[in-house]
Amino acid sequence: MVLERYPKAVVLDLDYTLWPFWCDTHVVRPLKAVSDVVVIDSCNLELSFYEEVESILLELKEYDVKIIGASRTGTPDIAKDLLTMLHIRGNPAITYFDCLEWGTGSKTRHIQRAAKKLKLTKELANGDFVLFDDEKRNRDVSSINCHFIHVPNEGLTRHTFIQGLRAWNKATK
């Protein structure tokens, strides 16, 4: 579904937004890709994206939206490995991200660093960034003019994605 317009950048949390687990507490190395879309850890936990994440990433790329990964994960190396091992249309998922800001600290700092790296500080100031995140505490990104979209328990779905971008469109007209 084509929207009226898209933001310059979409920021995506990882854990319980793109996939149904926490990298730093649920995943145990070593990791092994069993297909392009499934990785297993040493406990045979199957790791993959939520069902509609792939189509959302493809749509964002189609409309030239910058994709930023922002996560408070304490194990960024596991997150990087997963995004490298999971594939979308034959390409490592990590290649769909324009910037990755992971580690401790607030999402506001992650987003501000990403905007600076991508030379999009003006666009951030103008409200042209949207964050999709499962943790409501990250609403504080509104203090830097980033629109917050809460992702419910089932992870990022097309419904949440469209509803969130429509809300952003309405708020920034």
Results as ranks from 00 to 15, higher is better:
26 H>N: 15
27 V>A: 08
27 V>W: 04
31 L>H: 08
32 K>V: 12
33 A>K: 15
37 V>G: 01
37 V>R: 14
37 V>L: 00
38 V>E: 15
40 I>K: 13
42 S>A: 15
43 C>W: 02
43 C>G: 07
46 E>T: 07
46 E>A: 06
48 S>T: 07
49 F>L: 07
50 Y>T: 03
51 E>A: 03
51 E>V: 08
54 E>C: 02
54 E>V: 14
54 E>M: 04
55 S>G: 00
56 I>M: 03
57 L>Y: 03
57 L>T: 11
59 E>V: 00
60 L>P: 01
61 K>Y: 05
61 K>L: 11
61 K>V: 05
62 E>N: 08
64 D>K: 14
67 I>Q: 13
68 I>Y: 11
69 G>V: 15
71 S>L: 00
72 R>C: 13
73 T>L: 12
73 T>A: 09
74 G>M: 12
75 T>I: 01
76 P>Y: 02
82 L>D: 04
86 L>G: 05
86 L>Y: 04
86 L>R: 07
87 H>L: 07
88 I>Q: 05
88 I>H: 05
89 R>E: 10
92 P>R: 07
95 T>S: 13
95 T>W: 04
95 T>G: 00
96 Y>M: 15
98 D>Q: 12
98 D>Y: 14
100 L>Y: 08
100 L>Q: 08
101 E>N: 00
101 E>R: 13
102 W>G: 00
102 W>S: 03
103 G>V: 02
105 G>C: 02
106 S>Q: 02
106 S>E: 11
108 T>G: 00
109 R>T: 10
111 I>W: 09
111 I>Y: 10
114 A>E: 14
116 K>G: 09
117 K>M: 12
119 K>V: 10
119 K>P: 01
120 L>Q: 15
120 L>P: 11
120 L>Y: 12
121 T>V: 14
122 K>L: 11
125 A>T: 04
127 G>Q: 05
127 G>T: 10
127 G>F: 09
128 D>C: 08
131 L>K: 11
131 L>C: 07
132 F>S: 09
133 D>K: 06
134 D>V: 09
136 K>G: 11
137 R>A: 15
137 R>G: 10
137 R>I: 14
138 N>Y: 08
139 R>F: 11
141 V>W: 11
142 S>A: 06
142 S>D: 09
143 S>N: 06
143 S>C: 00
145 N>L: 00
146 C>E: 07
146 C>R: 01
147 H>M: 01
149 I>W: 03
149 I>G: 02
150 H>G: 05
155 G>I: 12
155 G>Y: 08
156 L>Y: 07
157 T>Y: 02
159 H>P: 00
160 T>Y: 07
161 F>K: 03
